[in-house]
């Protein structure tokens, strides 16, 4: 009885020709969390992605150290730039990997066949990408603090980094889904992503810089607002257009 009811309420066409009474349609949140859980448990078994992102981040920081001669004077003004460059590059690495794994192992087709809304797949992937980025950031920040003797573990700073990462993961997930289906794949993602994600990166750098140099809060507020606006707009758009980038 209940099953029949849910099936009739749901007017969307079923993806498979199974009798609709068998199809169990999980709630939006549950289904999203299931995808996140799948990604996380797969990752925590091997740590393939996170370890690659981490090692890469540390290497980038080391290169910056010598390229920019990060002495105490310079450090204060470039820290946020160095951090965000690192996060952006590491982020692309992770985004590329997490999507091409889905594609190569045919998981994407499986996900598409699942009786869930397409946007569930988007949010699931975006959240797990975000979590990977955050894990890397949470490890990189104390290491950077230690190496350069600046305290980066501040709540306001973490908040800005979280907002920036959300925007970056939101656009990145959408674009990596697209780039994974092209001929050039990995090469294409940064080219597609960086110009579109430019507002996130610049606003985050600006806000972090303001916080680190102890600027007045009103100065930080404008980039922060733009960051929030960007996050909201792009999550909404990605939510609306994701259907079009996974359609077969």
């Amino acid at each position: 009885m209940m099953d029949k009811k849910t099936a009739t309420i749901d007017s969307r066409p079923q993806t498979m020709n199974r009798p609709s009474s068998i199809v169990h349609r999980p709630s939006f949140v549950k289904a999203t969390l299931a995808i996140v859980q799948k990604d996380l448990s797969a990752e925590f078994r091997s740590f393939e992605l996170i370890s690659a992102m981490l090692v890469f981040s540390l290497l980038v920081i080391i290169i910056f150290n010598f390229a920019l001669e990060l002495d105490i004077k310079v450090r204060e003004s470039v820290t946020s730039g160095v951090l965000w460059t690192t996060f952006a590059f590491a982020g692309t690495l992770g985004l590329n990997r997490s999507m091409s794994v889905e594609k190569d192992r045919g998981c994407m087709d499986g996900l598409l066949l699942a009786p869930v809304d397409r946007s569930v797949i988007y949010f699931g992937k975006a959240i797990s990408n975000l979590i990977f980025m955050l894990i890397v950031e949470v490890i990189v920040l104390p290491v950077y603090s230690m190496l350069y003797n600046v305290n980066l573990f501040r709540l306001d700073l973490l908040g800005v980094i979280l907002l920036g990462s959300i925007g970056y993961a939101a656009v990145g997930t959408l674009l990596s889904t697209m780039s994974a289906q092209t001929r050039t794949r990995e090469v294409l993602l940064p080219i597609l992503l960086f110009p579109v994600a430019m507002p996130v990166l610049l606003a985050s750098v600006k806000a972090c810089n303001g916080l680190l140099t102890g600027a007045e809060f009103s100065e930080v507020l404008t980039p922060l607002n733009l960051l929030i606006v960007y996050d909201v707009i792009f999550i909404a758009i990605a939510f609306m257009v994701f259907d079009f980038v996974v359609e077969e």
Binding site: T182, Y230, F244
Partner: peptide, 17 residues
């Protein structure tokens, strides 16, 4: 399809940039 999605993203991100 992909082109349309990308022009949309570009058109919105440029003013924010």
């Amino acid at each position: 399809r992909f082109g349309a999605v990308y022009t949309l993203l570009g058109g919105i991100s440029a003013p924010i940039t």
